Every structure is written in C-alpha cells, then in structure tokens.
Amino acid sequence: MRPRQNHHTETAEQHLVTRIPTAQIEEEVGAVIARLPEKGFDALEAVYIVDEKERLQGFLPLSVLFATRRHRRLREVMAPPPPAVHADVDQERVVGLAVRHNLTAVPVVGPDRRLLGVVPAQALLQILRREHVENLHRLAGIRRETASARNAMEAPPDPPDP
C-alpha cells in the first residue's frame, strides 16, 4: 500500500508495536505454543510467520493455532500473509485496510517486506475514534483542532453535582 503524500498526517509507524509473536515456516505448532508464555508481547492477535530474513510469509490467528494438532507444521496450516502497510502510510488508510480485510491487527513491513511489527487492535480503535472526532469537528466548522477542543469531544462527561 502506497503512502499518501502529506507531511501532517499520523502514520502507521506512530502506532507500531514490535513485540509480537513470530515463527519460522517449518516450525511445529506445539513448539510455537510452548514458547508463547516465555515472552511478553505488545500484541497477541496472531503468530506471524517469517522467513530467515524476517520477511512476512503468512500468519496464523491464535484461535486457529490453539485448535491445530501440535505436530502440524506452520506451512501446512498458515494463512497467506494479510495485506500489510509501510510505516509511512497514513493511519486512516491503515484502519481502512483493517476494516476491508477483517483484520484485528495490521502488519507493518519495510520496503523489502521485512516484518517491522503491527498496528494492534487497541490502536486501530483509537485511530477510528480520533478520525471520527476530526470528522465531527469538520462538520461543525472547527478548522483547527486544539487540545482543549479534542478533550471536550473525547473526555467522558463529568458526573452531575450532588
């Protein structure tokens, strides 16, 4: 996916998390499951299958991973790589891709297709919220969003006085 040329946009890189589960294509499902608890992850929606140069080859949602017989090799059960974005792609395009392809996280790759990380589900929700508020501002005629205007739109309401 090509980046939109705008220097004032928020990008995939700003939402990128890098501690995600990866595995090699020839690994067995059981070996991948066994090492999951050993590491702390920033996002845990799927295992991303990479080659020896860390290029994205496919993925396996955790729900499928845990339902698969432990002796199976990842190459036998993985899904093809999901659509991915480059780090400089506008955040709106990242969310659009997630919605169109029903992704809970969007992989971010370098020019050589090396997996850099993902934009996780929580970030996708935050982006959707922020874009919604920006659209409301535009509809209301607010041209320049200030921190106080954003806070007024995004903050929960104050509790009523007793």
Rank of each mutant, 00 (worst) to 15 (best):
D51N: 13
A121K: 14
A12Y: 02
L74N: 02
V29N: 03
L125V: 08
V50Q: 03
V50W: 01
Q91W: 06
E145S: 07
E27F: 10
L36Q: 07
A31H: 06
N6H: 08
L103K: 04
R93W: 06
A43R: 02
V89D: 00
N102E: 12
A34R: 10
I25W: 05
A23M: 14
S148M: 11
D161V: 15
V77G: 00
F59Y: 12
R2I: 13
K39W: 07
R138H: 12
K53I: 07
P37M: 10
P21E: 03
L97K: 04
E134M: 09
S63P: 01
A140I: 04
D112E: 15
V108R: 00
M1D: 03
A123Q: 01
R143G: 14
A121M: 15
D90Y: 07
R100S: 13
L16W: 04
L62G: 00
R75I: 10
M78S: 01
L125Q: 11
V89Y: 00
F59N: 01
T104P: 03
A87S: 15
D42V: 03
D51I: 11
M78Y: 02
A155F: 11
R4E: 10
A79Q: 08
R130L: 06
V119Y: 03
V29R: 01
A152C: 15
P81H: 08
R75Q: 11
V118T: 05
E27R: 06
V32E: 01
E131H: 09
Q126D: 12
